[in-house]
């Protein structure tokens, strides 16, 4: 009952509004950076990811391509349906988690830490293969608990400022906060190049920023709480087009 109430609280305003990517809230000049691959700095990471995709690593000197072939076909649409259920850990995992797992478990290569240049590069390259694909979370009942945990985390007030995600991103989306417009918080573009970071970062890094912004203690990278919020945000953005690798201010 309590959970239902929370769900209703957070999802209604978003559903009532038209789904709007953070791209729409950006200045024309920032949009132009994203639109043109030749000016989008994130493409430097994509290039790195493309090189990693076909470089042999691990005991059997296999590359991602040895098993998956051309990413353009094998990875098309994959990013649009994560987080997904992971049989091995019997828990949901996000795309970066899946890639990191494939690298250690299947490729037998040294692990790639969260937010490491290599994992960001591979995530950007795999993510690019879904650019323009509509977000479509898997209809897997095993993901339901994570989705509702994510919804609850989104609606929960936190930090010294005692604010929930929903208070900013549902109740005040479209309003200005200091210099920036509060977006609806859609996960369409990750990993993305944030001008503020002067580099590429994951959705979890973005969430971390929003949590420290309200002076709340952020979760550790890869924590189930982040995966749950990611699952909730992807569900909330169902049907929106993937933009990876996007640019944000």
């Amino acid at each position: 009952m309590k959970r239902l109430a929370l769900l209703a609280l957070c999802c209604l305003p978003a559903a009532a509004q038209e789904l709007r990517s953070g791209f729409e809230d950006m200045a024309r000049e920032t949009q132009a950076l994203q639109r043109e691959d030749a000016t989008n700095p994130a493409m430097l990471w994509v290039q790195e990811g493309e090189a990693l995709w076909s470089s042999p690593a691990g005991a059997n000197a296999q590359s991602c391509a040895s098993c998956h072939g051309a990413a353009e076909t094998s990875m098309r649409g994959v990013a649009a349906r994560y987080p997904a259920w992971d049989e091995a850990s019997a828990a949901p995992t996000d795309l970066a988690g899946r890639i990191a797992q494939c690298r250690t478990e299947r490729q037998g290569a040294p692990p790639l830490e969260r937010e490491s240049p290599g994992l960001l590069a591979l995530s950007a390259y795999v993510g690019l293969q879904s650019r323009g694909v509509a977000i479509s979370p898997p209809a897997d009942p095993r993901l339901a608990p994570a989705m509702s945990q994510g919804a609850a985390l989104y609606a929960e007030r936190r930090g010294q400022l005692d604010l929930s995600c929903a208070q900013c991103h549902d109740d005040n989306a479209g309003r200005r906060l200091a210099g920036s417009t509060i977006p609806q918080a859609h996960p369409t573009g990750y990993p993305l190049y944030r001008l503020e970071w002067q580099g590429l970062g994951s959705l979890q890094r973005r969430l971390r920023g929003c949590m420290t912004g309200v002076r709340a203690e952020p979760f550790r990278y890869g924590a189930p709480e982040y995966i749950a919020i990611e699952a909730f945000l992807m569900g909330r953005a169902t049907g929106m087009a993937m933009e990876t690798p996007a640019v944000r201010p």
Partner: peptide
């Protein structure tokens, strides 16, 4: 509920150091 105006006033300094 926090009013939008108050919310923005409180949150701004935290996000902008």
């Amino acid at each position: 509920m926090t009013t939008p105006r108050r919310l923005l006033l409180v949150a701004a300094p935290a996000l902008l150091l």
